[in-house]
């Protein structure tokens, strides 16, 4: 029994989760396309991670939290009722101020493909790692990434 080690490990994990939380909110804002909803789901994910900290086997706590958060987000998306296309007025000011073309181009992607793109391009996770996080095969991730980049290349005019 390594009882002495339990508390510090738990505290370390909590610290890592806290550090990863703002990033998760931002990531989910791009996946869910709603920063308020992203915060709500991120809080649920954080709570879930704390509840299940004993199940954490070590490694990348951020990836673990992101996995929980993304899956909750996909669940939430599945539950959403179909909505009409977003009007320009519905677009968040922060996105429009930053990069409206990219924001609108990302809307063309399916949420899980959007998530895979972000995990690959921004975080550098491998296709296998992304597959584990999103619950799909690595080959599916490869296919998604190829397709989404091709689509963005057209939408953003990124020929090189």
């Amino acid at each position: 029994m390594e009882l002495a080690g339990v508390a510090p490990i738990a505290a370390d994990l909590e610290s890592e989760l806290i550090a990863a939380y703002p990033g998760l909110v931002r990531r989910l804002a791009l996946v869910l396309r709603d920063s308020h909803e992203a915060e709500d789901v991120a809080q649920a994910a954080f709570a879930r991670a704390l509840e299940r900290r004993r199940l954490f086997r070590g490694g990348d706590a951020r990836a673990w939290l992101y996995t929980i958060g993304l899956r909750l987000a996909f669940n939430e998306l599945r539950r959403r009722r179909p909505t009409v296309s977003l009007q320009a007025a519905d677009e968040p000011s922060w996105a429009i101020a930053s990069d409206p073309d990219l924001w609108r181009a990302l809307a063309e992607l399916e949420a899980r493909q959007r998530a895979a793109l972000l995990l690959s391009v921004l975080d550098g996770y491998t296709h296998a790692e992304i597959g584990r996080m999103l619950g799909v095969r690595p080959g599916t991730v490869s296919s998604w990434l190829s397709r989404t980049k091709g689509r963005l290349r057209v939408l953003l005019g990124g020929d090189d």
Partner: peptide
């Protein structure tokens, strides 16, 4: 590729523009 680099830079900026969440 150049496209990947530009895409990464733009995604970073977009993600950073998301408003700060409320503290936990």
């Amino acid at each position: 590729s150049d496209f990947d680099r530009r895409l990464r830079s733009r995604l970073q900026r977009l993600e950073e523009s998301v408003p700060d969440p409320q503290p936990l």
